[in-house]
Computed example of a mutant assay.
Amino acid sequence: MYYRIHIQGHLASGLQDSFAGLRIEQQEVGTTLFSGTLPDQSALYGVLLQFIRLGVVLLSLVSLETS
């Protein structure tokens, strides 16, 4: 499954390695966009759990089927 996850704020560059496999784009408006393929739903939960632990605000999550 391909995901686009939009969060409020920017992450410190040292934390970005924790999201291996996802492309990370810091937006000029002060948000960050994560995008990429995750192997299963448990991997998605792992990413979301990292956001919770960091205390970031989830703005949106979109999933798209990949073929």
Rank of each mutant, 00 (worst) to 15 (best):
Q50K: 14
M1E: 00
L49E: 01
V47S: 07
T31A: 07
G21L: 00
V56G: 03
A20M: 00
A12K: 10
S60K: 11
E25T: 15
Q27C: 07
Y2C: 14
R23I: 10
L22T: 11
Q41S: 12
I7P: 01
L33I: 06
L33D: 04
Q16N: 10
S35I: 02
Q8K: 15
Y2E: 15
S35K: 09
V56E: 06
Q8I: 00
L58S: 10
L15N: 02
I24H: 05
Q27E: 15
Y3H: 15
G30N: 09
L64H: 11
L11V: 01
G36M: 06
G55S: 04
A20D: 11
D17G: 07
Y2G: 06
S67Q: 08
G46P: 04
I52E: 08
Q8L: 09
G46L: 02
L44H: 09
G9W: 01
H10W: 14
S13P: 00
L61H: 12
Q41G: 12
S35M: 12
G30Y: 09
Y45W: 07
I52Y: 04
L48D: 00
P39V: 13
E65M: 04
E25Q: 15
F19I: 01
H6S: 05
A43G: 10
L44T: 12
Q8H: 09
L54E: 10
S67I: 05
I24T: 07
V62W: 07
D17L: 11
E28P: 14
T32D: 05
V62G: 01
E65D: 15
E65W: 02
L11F: 04
F34R: 11
E65F: 00
V29K: 05
I24G: 00
L15H: 06
V57I: 13
A20P: 02
S18A: 08
L22N: 05
F34G: 02
G36D: 09
A12F: 09
S35Q: 14
S35R: 12
G46V: 01
I24M: 03
G55H: 06
A43P: 13
L64K: 14
S63N: 07
L49Y: 08
V47C: 11
E65Y: 00
G14Q: 09
E28M: 03
T66Q: 13
L15E: 08
L44R: 05
V62M: 07
A12P: 14
H10M: 04
